[in-house]
Amino acid sequence: MKMGYYPGCSISGSSREYGESLLAVLRALDVELAEVEDWNCCGASAAHNLNHTLSLALPARSLALAEQQGFQELLVPCAACFSRLAATRKALMADDAKRRQIADLVELPMKNIPVSINLLQLLQRVLPENLKEKLRAPFDYKVACYYGCLLVRPAEVVEFDREEDPEEMDRIMEKIGAAPLDWAFKTECCGAGFSVPRTDVVGRLCARILDDAVSRGAEAVIVACPMCHSNLDMRRQASESHSGKKYTIPILYVTQAIGLALGLDAKQLGLQRHIVPVRLSAGKSSQILENAPA
């Protein structure tokens, strides 16, 4: 099975461990990806803030290219890109005139716009039922699955899981031997696009999230979005200075957790790239994971 792949800018830059772990895990699961050639930035979250038409035009070009390259479905691992691409498809399917205008501009047909799916949707499909038997090192930790905003809402755009208290990532974690926690901040916003201009806000929002996860005994927060990751990991200092507490809880991509459970190499999964070191307690799956900050 070969699926279209839209990595997005973060995966190509500051969140490359997401891309690395994703490719490693999917390779292990025999899922082939083909990157959309010459894709461009989806514009999130700047474009829709300033110019609605641009917020449709940017994703539309990548979608048109994907269509031309024969893809019917696109894996979009970044939740923000996923939301933009899915929303654009929905808007253009409902607005023939705009679709034709953009098609003319990019000089591509735009007739059967490919459907975007997020990583959880893909995993839902490709993780085998008997995954537990194949695990080399079950990931038996208490985890807080953090979905963030755009992975599950609004329902009419993403058409996936429940808007409040989503469950799919929790199910995936159960499959690799983890114990997902019932916690309260699964879908509370981390501040996404304010990482640079309003780091203070991100600090406040992330502190709430980390606080709740830690207080319920989580050993790791699992994410499926580079924005969520960079806010919770890279902006750890801002969170700590907001709450005056120290948080050591590591933030793992869902693919990194799966990769570890499948016995893939920590380096291959990009764990060394995290700002907050990934130290998971010993004695459980008899694996000590540690990476010294480079």
Binding site: D38, W39, N40, N51, H52, T53, L54, A57, L58, R61, Q101, I102, L105, V106, E107
Partner: peptide, 19 residues
Amino acid sequence: VKHPKAMRKLFKWAAEDKE
């Protein structure tokens, strides 16, 4: 990207957004 012109075309068109 290979076709920076296409990008600029999109920006130019969007700049005429009614909103």
